[in-house]
């Protein structure tokens, strides 16, 4: 059993944080708190991606997943009319222990990221096996071009379905036989 390198320690710590945050997501009582833990879980997985030598995927994870998809969740939760049934038994938003969990995990991830960027030893190991965005882009618009076009159809279908389903009922006054 050889000793673990600092890079491996960082990876296992980020993996542990991702698992803990994911467990808190599925065991949560308040949906906003679970959403916070989901954001932290995605950030931890992004740190894992960075340590695996995929900084492009790590950036996409932060920007698209944690930045766009989770904001969609937040908008939907706001439209659900929060506070009717499930926030009554939850602790108040001003209490200390509501935000202490996600912020501790996020602070650990930040400390990890600073350490990884600051340490020249880890950077040497990382730059030797990195797959950069240029390779991904060349592959994406070369052999995988058909998959990209199919994905664009998928996004178009998601757009149309989202528009159709999220339309308030009775928006069209005639022939509104009601939806789904």
């Amino acid at each position: 059993m050889n000793v673990l390198s600092p890079l491996q320690w960082m990876f296992y710590l980020a993996a542990l944080l991702a698992i803990v945050a994911s467990l808190k997501v599925i065991t949560g009582k308040n949906s906003v708190h679970s959403l916070l833990y989901l954001v932290v879980s995605l950030l931890a997985v992004a740190v894992c991606f960075y340590l695996m030598g995929a900084p492009f995927a790590a950036g996409l994870e932060v920007i698209v997943y944690a930045g766009a998809i989770l904001v969609l969740f937040v908008f939907a939760i706001m439209m659900f009319g929060l506070g009717k049934d499930e926030t009554l038994n939850a602790p108040k938003i001003t209490s200390f222990r509501v935000w202490i969990g996600p912020s501790v995990i996020a602070a650990l991830l930040l400390a990890q990221l600073v350490y990884v960027i600051d340490s020249p030893d880890i950077q040497d190991k990382l730059t030797s096996n990195v797959i950069n965005a240029k390779q991904v882009g060349a592959l994406l618009y070369g052999p995988y071009l058909l998959a990209v076009e199919i994905a664009s159809f998928l996004l178009l279908a998601g757009l149309i379905a989202g528009y159709h389903f999220a339309k308030p009922t009775g928006y069209h006054d005639n022939n509104n036989s009601g939806g789904w």
Binding site: F56, A57, L139, L140, G162, H164, F165, A166, T169
Partner: peptide
């Protein structure tokens, strides 16, 4: 780089799935 290409496709799938799913939840 194939793994990251697949990850981008999964990202697209997740975005479309969340859009449709949350709209159904609003209904």
């Amino acid at each position: 780089a194939d793994g990251q290409v697949m990850f981008i496709l999964i990202l697209t799938l997740a975005a479309a799935e969340v859009a449709v799913g949350l709209a159904l939840l609003l209904q």
